[in-house]
Design a protein around this nucleic acid. Sequence first.
DNA 1: TTCTAAAGTTGACAACGTCAACATTTCATA
DNA 2: TATGAAATGTTGACGTTGTCAACTTTAGAA
Lengths: 219, 219
Amino acid sequence: MATKKSYHHGDLRKKLLETALEIISEDGLEKVSMRKLGQRIGVSRTAPYRHFADKSMLLCAIAEQGHIKLTTVLKNANRQLIDDPLTRIRNTGIGYVEFAVRNPVHYRIMFGNEILENQRTPELVQAAETSFNELLYAVKACQEEKLIKPINPYIIANTLWSLTHGTSMLLIDGQIQSANAFRGMPAMLQTDIEAGEIDVRKIFEYKSDILFSGLAAES
Amino acid sequence: MATKKSYHHGDLRKKLLETALEIISEDGLEKVSMRKLGQRIGVSRTAPYRHFADKSMLLCAIAEQGHIKLTTVLKNANRQLIDDPLTRIRNTGIGYVEFAVRNPVHYRIMFGNEILENQRTPELVQAAETSFNELLYAVKACQEEKLIKPINPYIIANTLWSLTHGTSMLLIDGQIQSANAFRGMPAMLQTDIEAGEIDVRKIFEYKSDILFSGLAAES
DNA sequence: TTCTAAAGTTGACAACGTCAACATTTCATA
DNA sequence: TATGAAATGTTGACGTTGTCAACTTTAGAA
């Protein structure tokens, strides 16, 4: 649109989001500053303020983008050509956790960021709901084929969400890797963990099996 | 120990942690600064650096305190004079989520804080493991009375942890309150949510029931 | 009693978020 | 086509922050 040295950048908003994500995934969230964003892009230090009222609005937009990306991931898992909807729901969960582990800083902005707690834009709220709906979709599909109990699907999806979200956060935080958290998992898995590599798929398969079949001892 | 106007404060480290928590619960995490801490306590602005190498070490100590507090809460739930260990495990979960909801900012420092990801002190790691062990304890108690399947208790505790942690974070974040997340729950609960009040107990009872009995449809 | 380490202070610096005032560009409309 | 408002970008400035270096005061061990 705009040529190289024009006064107006042309698509600064988009470029800001891209660059912010770059910095975030390279150096972490604290390293992102409104000023540095401008400088890195080659624009003045307050130029970002023409596109985002303040820093938390920038973070809102980043979080929104994350939810949109997550939705795509979940959609792909959901729409795979797999006959068994139970496998699909499991893949959806795995997709969720994998997304979080691959985009840890991004994920942390989407959830668990105090700054955004009371300042979410309507767009962000909408994007978050849309991603939740994919979990709901997976649950309903299983119920239609009578593979899952016919209790309220929203409650089930919420429980599933808690499990995926909890697993994601604990993994990202590195809390799950340490010490006890995975003792007793198969030797292979433990070795991977010690080597710093985590097989998200295996971990989540364990958990979804437990959720599916329940904890109750057979009497 | 030291009288009022002595050069040395006497117990500055403790006072720093207390004051930090005060500021955090009043105004949020971003409002905490090393300088303000000093000023609020009536000591110079760099005095805190004699007790914490930098800000993230301060946060580490706060997180550690949180884990210790959480451990106490879980211990209380675990040691209640209730015959049914299944009720105890449920209460432990409820205690966990309640702690998180009552101390949201504190909880967010304990988990989900990027700053601490790679700088955890050994004390913090230890404190976190101790709180995990309470969940483990609750699981094992149930297994001893054959109320829960005899599969590896570490895996079960990990799953339980994910569920409580996920529920906590979603509640704290306000993500669970919005829109879909609780549709279909009993009317009473929904009214509470709309009024801004959340019955953590009810919410977690739903989820732990699902976890206990499993999602599988009876064939 | 003396000396060292711990604890607290002041001065300084660069980076940050953000505001106000100003400059340039775009674009709809007269 | 001319024009004026709205959008976009810039510079200067202010107060706050984390943290370092160099200094002072104090407590406690030798």
